[in-house]
């Protein structure tokens, strides 16, 4: 009796068989879409984060206000609602983006706001005296940022940045709500259709884990490193090695 119940239950072997027969066309397609959305989204978030992070530490009140408004709006509203707007709101203004583009821009904007705060904290940790010293050497503000401040901040910025990358990967799953074709969408759609949800969620979880775990380890390692050798030479290639591993 118990055996039969197991065979017919949500985790019975027949359910697993069904899953593996459709594995490549359902899960792999979704997995690679998620990877693509996440990596492009991360690029956008990095660019936005650095630009607005620098803005929020500038002397110009206008730039600081712009950065503040961006961060507050995007950090204080749910990603689900933001994505919903991009999907159903923008077409009313003549902008029809594909789900893929919405995914990239949606998570990019959302995490850009967080990264901007990370960058700001990193920049603010550098003593004010260095700006004055640079200015006295004839550096412009942008040059000071590019050659002096940002390279030093990177050590402080990298660990929380990696955390943001990790959260970004996880958050691409909201695309499932707008038929985004990502891993979560395919898993959802397939499991409700075939009524095989138990194994589906285990496999889906593992696929996300495969992306996120290396990122999590990288964050941990960077954090240790930035604590151990706080005054370490800037631009050492350790970060590069860690990145290759991820």
């Amino acid at each position: 009796m118990m055996f039969r119940a197991f065979m017919d239950g949500p985790f019975g072997p027949s359910k697993w068989m069904t899953l593996f027969s459709d594995f490549s066309e359902i899960f792999l397609i979704g997995f690679f879409t998620t990877l693509k959305v996440a990596s492009l989204g991360l690029c956008l978030a990095l660019v936005l984060g650095i630009v607005f992070g620098v803005f929020s530490t500038s002397n110009s009140k206008i730039l600081r206000t712009i950065a503040r408004v961006y961060v507050e709006i995007w950090q204080n509203t749910p990603l689900v609602i933001q994505i919903f707007f991009l999907y159903n709101g923008l077409p009313r203004f003549g902008l029809v983006w594909s789900q893929f583009v919405i995914g990239v821009i949606g998570v990019g904007l959302y995490h850009g706001a967080y990264i901007s705060e990370v960058v700001r904290t990193g920049i603010e940790a550098i003593p004010k005296g260095q700006y004055e010293a640079a200015a006295s050497q004839g550096f412009t503000y942008l040059q000071t940022m590019r050659y002096i401040i940002l390279p030093q901040s990177i050590k402080i910025i990298l660990p929380p940045l990696t955390n943001q990358a990790l959260n970004l990967v996880k958050n691409t799953s909201v695309l499932a709500m707008i038929a985004g074709g990502d891993l979560m969408y395919h898993a959802d759609s397939w499991s409700t259709y075939k009524l095989v949800y138990g194994p589906t969620y285990i496999v889906t979880g593992m696929l996300y884990f495969v992306i996120c775990y290396p990122l999590s380890k990288l964050a941990e390692r960077l954090e240790k490193k930035s604590k151990e050798d706080a005054p370490a030479p800037v631009g050492s290639d350790d970060a590069g090695k860690g990145g290759a591993e991820a």
Binding site: M2, D8, G198, G205
Partner: peptide, 21 residues
């Protein structure tokens, strides 16, 4: 992770045996 998930899973399917028992 797999162990935890399967434990959770079996928690779910253990009820099935009770039901079908």
């Amino acid at each position: 992770a797999t162990m935890l998930l399967t434990t959770a899973a079996c928690g779910g399917s253990q009820e099935a045996p009770a039901d079908g028992g």
